[in-house]
């Protein structure tokens, strides 16, 4: 199951809530304001690293670019919209907002 998160973790507990329900192996995709979670060196980096031990983590590249986020927590992969579709091909979707 693909989990998408579109909220900044600084403003909203969606990321925290979503991670409680993650099963190992389920991919997590940050989109929209959610991508602020994966900027390297912020207060959520440790949590991202913890999730990465069991789950692949992606961020939507156009949303990162739009927000000027260049350096990501190590291990986070980026996808474009077609990559997003690719994840949806492989998984049912759980859109957290």
């Amino acid at each position: 199951m693909l989990h998408t998160i579109n909220k900044s973790p600084f403003e909203n507990n969606t990321f925290e809530t979503c991670t409680r329900f993650l099963l190992p192996g389920d991919p997590v995709l940050f989109i929209e304001d959610g991508v602020y979670a994966v900027q390297s060196g912020n207060k959520f980096t440790h949590e991202i690293e913890r999730v990465l031990k069991t789950n692949p983590v992606f961020a939507l590249r156009p949303d990162l670019d739009a927000r000027g986020i260049g350096t990501l927590a190590e291990g986070v992969e980026t996808v474009d919209y077609e990559g997003f579709v690719g994840l949806v091909e492989e998984h049912q979707v759980n859109s957290w907002f």
Partner: peptide, 19 residues
């Protein structure tokens, strides 16, 4: 909200990929 924009971009990409 950006939701409508993301939905549109997603739809375009899905169609482009042949879905």
């Amino acid at each position: 909200h950006q939701a409508s924009d993301t939905a549109f971009k997603f739809a375009e990409a899905a169609i482009k990929k042949g879905h």
